[in-house]
Write a protein that binds this DNA or RNA. Structure first.
Lengths: 204, 204
DNA sequence: CCACTTACTATACGGAGTCCAGAAATTACT
DNA sequence: AGTAATTTCTGGACTCCGTATAGTAAGTGG
C-alpha cells in the first residue's frame, strides 16, 4: 500500500476504484449481501488482489476516515510543540479540531451517510468506532507524557477516551446531517471544547 | 439464554463453564489460536451448542462486563425518575456510577486484565467497540429525550460518547491495575464527574 | 404412557481471511 | 537485445466463523 514503487509491475487498480465498486453494490444489495468476490469482479481484479488493497471487507467503509485519522499523531506533535502552555486536554482538543479542519468536507464516509440503505447494522458501526479506539493509545500516551503521569495511570486514559468519544460523535452527527451540514471543524470544535473544559482543571 | 425453564431438557453446560474453558485455552494458545471447536470440546458440548450460550466467539471475553451493562437502561430510568432537576450529563454520570457500584468487584473481565497474554490484538478493540456502540445508542436516546433535542441532534450524541468513553477508560484502567485496585465505583466516579462538569453548562 | 417443551447433536453450507507458488508486467543493468 | 530484479496479479487450497436445519435426547405434566 506504500505509494507505488517506480519499478515492478504497475498497479491495475486502486483503493478508490475498489471502494467505488463496493459502494454501488452495497447500496444495491446491502453490505452483508455483497461478497468480496463481487466487489473484486466489478473492479476488474481477482479476489486475492482485493486483499492487497484492503485488509478486510469492513475497511472499505472507512477509507476517508482512515486517511484523516492518520494525521492525528502529527497534529498532536504540532500542537504540543507550538503551545506548551496549553493544558493536556486543551492540546488534544486543538489537535482534534486541526484534524477536522484539514479534512476535505466533500468526503463524507458513506458508511455513515448511507448506512441505513446499506443495512449496515451495529457491528459495522462498531468497526468505525474501533478506528477511534485505535487512536486512543497514541492520544493517551501523549497526555501521559504531557502530565508526567505514569504509564497505566487512569487520568490520561480518561482524557483521551472522553475527547475521542466527543469528536467521534460530533463527526457522526455531522456526516448524518445531510446536505447543508456545515464544516466538520464547526461540528467538532464545540464538542471537544466542552469536554476539555471539564477536564481542564485537573492539570496536576 | 433465559433462566432455564422448569420444563424441557435440562442444560448440560453454562456460560461460565464455557468461558472458563475458553480462558484456559486463550491463555495457552492465544485467542486467534483457539477454535470454537476446542472450547466446546473442553467444556463437553458440541460446537453447535456453544452458539446456544454465546452469539459469537468474542462474547466470551465480556461475560462479566455484559452482565453489568445490562443494568444500565434501568439505572438511567432510576436516576431520571428520582432526580429530575439534574442536568442530562449529570444524570448519565450518576447512572454510570450506579452501574459501577453494583458491579461485583471480584469479577474482572479477563479480556482486559489478561488481554496481553491472550494476544487479543484487534479482536479486543473490535468487540470492545461493539459494546460501546450498543450502550451509546441507549444513552444518547435518553439524553435526547431529557434535553428535548431532536433525534439526530449532535449534542446528545456528544454527551453520551464522551461520558461512555470516560467511564470505559476508567474501567479499563481499573481492570489493568491488578491486585490492589480499589472499587470500580471509585475509579469511574471522578472520571465521569469531570467530564459531566464540562458538559453541564449546556443544559439548553 | 403419551403429549409437550426445551436442549443437544450432526451436518452442511457460504463467506471471510490467509497462504503460497507461479505467472505477468514493468524497470534497470549489461 | 537480453537478462535480472522487482513488484503486482492470479488461481487454488485451506481454516475457521457463523447460520440453518432436521432429527434426537431428556426432562415435566397430564
Amino acid at each position: 500500500m506504500t505509494p507505488s514503487a517506480r519499478t515492478g509491475r504497475p498497479r491495475r487498480s486502486s483503493a478508490e476504484i475498489l471502494a467505488d465498486a463496493a459502494s454501488e453494490l452495497f447500496l444495491e444489495n446491502g453490505y452483508a449481501g455483497t461478497t468480496v468476490d463481487q466487489i473484486a469482479q466489478r473492479a476488474g481484479v481477482s479476489r486475492a488482489t482485493f486483499f492487497n488493497y484492503f485488509a478486510g471487507k469492513a475497511d472499505l467503509l472507512w477509507l476517508d476516515l482512515d486517511e484523516s485519522l492518520r494525521s492525528l499523531p502529527g497534529a498532536l506533535l504540532e500542537v504540543g510543540g507550538s503551545d506548551p502552555s496549553l493544558s493536556a486536554p486543551d492540546s488534544v482538543a486543538r489537535a482534534l479540531v486541526l484534524v477536522a479542519q484539514r479534512h476535505d468536507d466533500s468526503r463524507v464516509p458513506w458508511a455513515l451517510s448511507q448506512g441505513e440503505t446499506m443495512r449496515l447494522g451495529d457491528d459495522l458501526t462498531a468497526s468505525g468506532a474501533a478506528r477511534f479506539v485505535a487512536q486512543h493509545s497514541i492520544v493517551a500516551a501523549f497526555v501521559a507524557e504531557r502530565t508526567e503521569a505514569r504509564a497505566g495511570d487512569a487520568w490520561p486514559q480518561v482524557v483521551s477516551a472522553a475527547l475521542l468519544g466527543a469528536a467521534g460523535a460530533a463527526a457522526v452527527a455531522w456526516a448524518r446531517a445531510g446536505i447543508g451540514r456545515g464544516s466538520l471543524e464547526d461540528a467538532v470544535e464545540p464538542a471537544v471544547e466542552a469536554v476539555a473544559a471539564g477536564l481542564g482543571g485537573h492539570t496536576l
